[in-house]
Nucleic acid binder design. Structure first.
Lengths: 329, 329
DNA sequence: CAGAAAATTGTAATCGATTACAAATATGAT
DNA sequence: ATCATATTTGTAATCGATTACAATTTTCTG
């Protein structure tokens, strides 16, 4: 791989001139430009990002932190981020932390080391203290999960309201015994969705029973299956389920299918996220649709503004309740 | 962010000494080491990857090229890659090409520019010519999709055999009219799976009918639904389906569910990949299980060996036919 | 055609690390 | 105490680009 010196030599000019041809084409005569361009072509030269970044302190790379790519929720968000990034001549690097603090550290260092210009964190398990430290001197945006009262700008939806509406939908269908399959309440979205669930129940004078609130460890299908099994073993079984994630809801659906009960006749289910698979299940899943693509676009735009040094404000996007077969009893 | 000069100054030593403390601790007296370590701590110093990489021509970063993260097949493979990489103090960068040549180029340049030490490509749409050029001077490994007779080492499974076994399983169940939902035959795996499909049919003297072979554009669920709709409109309907991807098979399942027919009684289905969804459908999906995690581990090990300059041989891993409800008629 | 102004090109410092080589210091032998 | 040797430390070149400033060439003006 040729370097700028070799190009300069071949073209019979100085490295400065080559650099000028490469960048803001200020004052290079047509003849010289041609000579240089030929030399570049002949040598198959491509400028080194390393040298360039070192000098410019800019990499035009954006880091995207996510706990795991196995949750399809992230897919669409990433699409939005990537398209926006590319439109602004940035590129993205997907970083799976697996909720592992050591990996997280590695990626934080990439930012500190100018290997990337900023981060979008979608990781609810992120170490907020470290992220806040990083955010003092580097552009950081939170996407989906955020910190209440924190100083890092975020883009998210109103989880509490969405949960409230989802549960209200179940109530309007005549359900009085509504269970919640929640994830770990150390996550903000989890607390918010529970809060929306409780608000709806209270508003209609329905009981909030602890045994109808199940907490899962992860968001895998299997956790949903497990949750459903527990709920079906109760003496007083719920007639409807609200799960805080489609993956859990789909697992729950599977759990019910194996039990002889019928969805939606015996049990109605609402999920959350509107992942593409939620339209493939039998029955199809009623769910809260997050504007995932738009969320990604917004997060990327915010980050790019932040990199430019502009002030950015947090944004709450709209959601939708998508009614499908699992609540059409 | 402090640099090595500031640390040197604070510790009252030269930059060389600081560098020595940082790296191979050759000949640094305990006193000096302590001074330097204190300075590092006080300044919160972290060495710049940029400077280091520029000098060392090494980034300890591995690129993983994939067409789209929306296909869950890749998830497990990536896990294997990542764990192996980290065990060897490498990190991975996930790069979604979206089958877009321009994006591909960007990532190829990262390699050329020493921003990454090697690539694992899982992208069947990758520009093989460019990849071959890259492979002449840089470590490259192909994972899953590969080039027959090519010079780039790969890790894969025997797609032809797997398809043959899957279709044979359908035949043994008594099916005589077996359709194939294939993807685009510009992909090697697609041609191989078709070939296995045909071999099985021929072996049992069953007809190979063009109208029973459907080609999809992508591997999204919706493509499977579409394919199934077409197949169900045929005068002579198949009694069994082999789809080259679980996503297609799941879409097909959905297509059948909407038609009043019953799986597996009226129609049996076999998929390919054993993605986690395939166990959540109703009925659950019979499928060919690829050793995804192991494939990732193997690819990463091969790449790391290749980076070290060692010769690596291509590997074909074993697969399994997982029999579930969709063929238990 | 001389001289001023404008356009073009080159020189050299810089970004932050590593490392060969040289210099300084410490240790040991007599 | 002196010299040889071993250990530790420093100096300066290097990786590949960018860019302020200086130097050169071209163009324009009278």
């Amino acid at each position: 791989m040729a370097n700028i010196q070799q190009v300069a030599q071949k073209a019979g000019v100085s490295v400065a001139t080559v650099s000028r041809v490469l960048n803001h084409a200020t004052s290079v005569s047509p003849k010289t430009r041609l000579k240089v361009e030929n030399a570049i072509r002949e040598l198959n030269y491509e400028p080194s990002m390393l040298g360039r970044n070192l000098r410019n302190s800019e990499s035009r790379l954006l880091l995207v932190l996510l706990p795991s790519i196995s949750n399809p929720f992230y897919t669409e968000v990433i699409n939005g981020i990537q398209n926006t990034a590319i439109a602004n001549s940035y590129n993205i690097l997907l970083c799976e932390t697996d909720s592992n603090p050591q990996r997280e550290n590695i990626y934080f260092n990439m930012i500190k080391n100018k290997l990337a210009d900023g981060v979008i964190s979608m990781d609810p398990t992120v170490n907020m203290q470290k992220l806040n430290e990083l955010a003092e001197s580097h552009p950081v945006i939170l996407c989906s999960e955020y910190e209440e009262g924190g100083s890092i700008p975020y883009v998210t939806i109103d989880s509490e309201l969405a949960a409230y509406q989802a549960v209200k939908h179940l109530i309007k269908l005549g359900n009085k015994k509504i269970a919640l399959i929640n994830s770990d309440e150390k996550f903000l979205y989890s607390r918010q969705r529970r809060s929306g669930y409780e608000r709806a129940l209270q508003e209609f004078d329905l009981p909030i029973r602890d045994e109808w609130i199940y907490h899962t460890k992860d968001l895998e299908f299997q956790n949903g299956v497990q949750a459903m099994r527990m709920l079906l073993e109760l003496e007083e079984k719920p007639t409807a389920i609200f799960a805080v994630s489609d993956t859990l809801a789909i697992g729950a659906l599977k759990g019910i299918n194996g039990s002889g009960l019928h969805v939606p006749n015996d049990l109605a289910i609402v999920g959350f996220d509107n992942i593409s698979f939620s339209n493939m299940t039998n029955p199809t899943l009623t769910t809260v649709s997050q504007p995932m693509y738009k969320m990604g676009v917004t997060a990327a735009n915010m980050l790019i503004m932040s990199i430019k040094g502009e002030q950015v404000e947090s944004i709450v996007l709209d959601h939708d309740l998508i009614i499908r077969e699992s609540t059409m009893g």
